[in-house]
Every structure is written in structure tokens, then in C-alpha cells.
Design a binder for these strands. Structure first.
Lengths: 197, 197
DNA sequence: GTCTATAAGATGATAGAC
DNA sequence: GTCTATCATCTTATAGAC
């Protein structure tokens, strides 16, 4: 009968928000502790270092994003629908979880060597999902795109950058952004549907 | 008969590289001084603070980027050519000057309130150049794009993100990236040329 | 598991000699 | 204008009481 998140989860949440707002290096363990309603020393009861907090946030964020794009890519047999859903869900995730997404996309360089390697494999997996969708559409003749790796990278760029500029209360809702970006991705791959949309 | 950059310029160059590699907060004044071949104290003979170095790099970088896109947008009477040139030159600038571009795009939150305001007006000017090109193309009937502000933002995103992932010695040259991104931007705005390209 | 107190070192910036 | 030396403060992380 827990009436709130436990201390460990409160600390990762507090660290995530702080890292997103100011960056890993500009965040102090005192910031994190204060935000979680604890003393600075309490941080180290639950986590071995500030860098470990960054790793946990980054790892769980990547895992969540990978689940989202994997499910979206498998949601249809049609390449256009697959790309539309994948980009839509990925962009939506970046907008809704913009705080975690910022840490995921921009604070990776503060990770230790070992942790960075663990994160890198997850990043490759996410990229692979998108690349496979685009490759499939090109092979099927639904997409017309000369440079699949380059276009994959460009669409990833488009979505990732949402984490940089998105603000709560901005002029667009996450759903509107997701819809727009999914349509733009279809244009980028030269989507020619067999039936009129 | 100068045989190298003066101390002041050496310091901004050293600071720019350090900020790009590790971020503003993770860079120490000792890092900057060592990179410029000076003692930590020498930094303060030429600059009043670490934040001032960030501001100078950010301001000059924004000014350079604004000049590049302004010239590109004015390089033709044809909307498609204008957009192609603007995105091409903007992407090229981000790849070639990726170190400065990283600072420009990702370290703005470390600026003082006053400095941030000075930078914000330059950012709006850059965005306006791109938006005007797209608006012009839509009015002319060369572009088919329902959401001009959204598409403007998306194309900016695409280009800005080059600063995040670009590495010297990567699989693509800056020119190849620029060509690809210019074509993708034309697809994003629904460019329908009057004469076959 | 939480706290207060503090160790050990790093950091931005300055003083003053040359 | 550059240096060595240093100040005052902040930072990560730990020690030990409760």
C-alpha cells in the first residue's frame, strides 16, 4: 500500500528532471537530493554515484523508446503505415517524455566508457528498426529513396531534435507534432501509396 | 607580421573546442588555458569570465550562420532554388563548423539572461529567413505544404541536429550531407517544379 | 534509511611579482 | 601580458550518530 514512489525512484526522477534542465555537469548531487526531498548523503544509500543515476535514466529511456518503435513498426503489413506509425510514435514519445528524451539524446557523453557502450547498442537497435522499415518500403516499391542510410539518419534527426525544442504549453500538442512529423517522413522517403490516401 | 592568432583569439578557439567536446559546465577555465597554452590566470586578462567566452562564441557563430542563410536565400528568384541553396548552405555550415555549431545549438542555456536575449534575436532572424523562403514558395504555388511554421521548424531541426551527430572522418563528407538535406527539404515542402529537374 | 558533519579535492576568479 | 600562488567557495562522496 505505497502512497508514493519509493526513495530510489524519487531520486531517479529528480535527477532526470535536473539533468534535462541544466545538463549532467551543471547538476549537483545537492540539487538532486533537494528535489527528492532528502539530504545529500541519502543519495548514496540508493545509488553509487551521480553517473550511475545518469546511466539508469539513459538505459531505461532507451529501452522505453525501443519498445515504442518496435511495436509501431510491427503494427501493419504496409510499409507506408509502418513508417507513419513508427515516426508518429517515436516523435510522440520525444514530446511527451521530453525530459527523459533530452537526457537520452544529449547527455550520453557524460557516461563512463562501459555504460556508454551499453547505451550505444540500444541506439543501434532503434536505428535498425527505422532503417528496416524504410528498406522494406523501397523493396516493395512504395518508397522512392536513393539513400536509405542517409534518409534513415535524417528522419531520426528530425525526431530526436524534438527533445531539444519541445516545451510544455507550447503552440503544438505532442499529438499534433507527431502527426506532422509522420507525414513529413513519408514525404522524405518518397512515399507513393498504391491506393489514394 | 603575426605568426599566429593572438591570445584572445586562441582563448576563444580553445574554449569553443572544449565546450563542443564536453559542454560548458564540464569545461574548466584550466582546460581552456591549457589548450591555449597559457596559465589559468591569463584567461582573465582577455575575458572577464567563462560565460563571456561562451557568449562570444555563440554570438559570432550565430552571426556567421545568419550571413550564410541570408546569402543563400537571396541567391535565386526561384523558390525551389532558394530553399535548396538555403538548406544546403545551412547544413554545410553545421557540418564544417560542427564544433562551433554544437556550442551554438546546445549550450545556450548556460548563458546569462542578458546574453541569452541577444542570442535569441539572432535565432529568430535565422528562422525567419527559412520561413520566408517557404512562404514564398507556397504563395507561388511551387510548394505544397499545409503547415508552414511546422515545416519550417522541422527543416531547422533536421539541419541543427547535424551538429549533434557529425564527426570528422565519418562516412559522409559535409558536401554529401548538404546535398542530401537540401533534397529532403524540397520533398518536405512538397516541391513541384514547373520544369523537370 | 535518514540525518549532520566533514573529508578531500576541484573550481572560478584574483593578487601581486616580473 | 604572463606568470606563480592563492582565496573563497563549491563539489562528490563518506563517516558515524540515531
Amino acid at each position: 500500500m505505497a502512497d508514493g514512489p519509493d526513495a530510489r525512484a524519487r531520486l531517479t526522477a529528480a535527477a532526470g528532471r535536473s539533468f534535462a534542465e541544466r545538463g549532467f555537469s551543471a547538476t549537483t548531487t545537492r540539487d538532486i537530493a533537494a528535489r527528492a526531498g532528502m539530504s545529500p548523503a541519502a543519495v548514496y544509500v540508493h545509488h553509487s554515484s551521480k553517473e550511475e543515476l545518469l546511466f539508469l535514466i539513459s538505459r531505461d529511456g532507451h529501452d522505453a523508446a525501443l519498445r515504442v518503435v518496435t511495436a509501431a513498426a510491427a503494427s501493419s503489413e504496409d510499409p507506408g503505415q509502418q513508417l507513419w506509425a513508427t515516426v508518429r510514435e517515436f516523435a510522440l514519445w520525444h514530446a511527451v517524455h521530453h525530459s527523459v528524451a533530452r537526457v537520452v539524446q544529449y547527455e550520453g557523453c557524460a557516461l563512463s566508457r562501459e555504460h556508454r557502450a551499453l547505451i550505444a547498442s540500444r541506439r543501434r537497435a532503434i536505428e535498425q528498426v527505422l532503417r528496416d522499415v524504410i528498406e522494406f518500403g523501397v523493396q516493395r516499391g512504395d518508397f522512392h529513396c536513393d539513400d536509405v542510410p542517409g534518409t534513415t539518419m535524417a528522419i531520426l534527426s528530425l525526431v530526436v531534435d524534438v527533445a531539444r525544442w519541445y516545451r510544455d504549453g507550447g503552440p503544438r500538442t505532442p499529438d499534433q507534432i507527431a502527426d506532422l512529423y509522420a507525414e513529413l517522413a513519408l514525404r522524405m522517403v518518397g512515399h507513393q501509396p498504391r491506393t489514394t490516401r
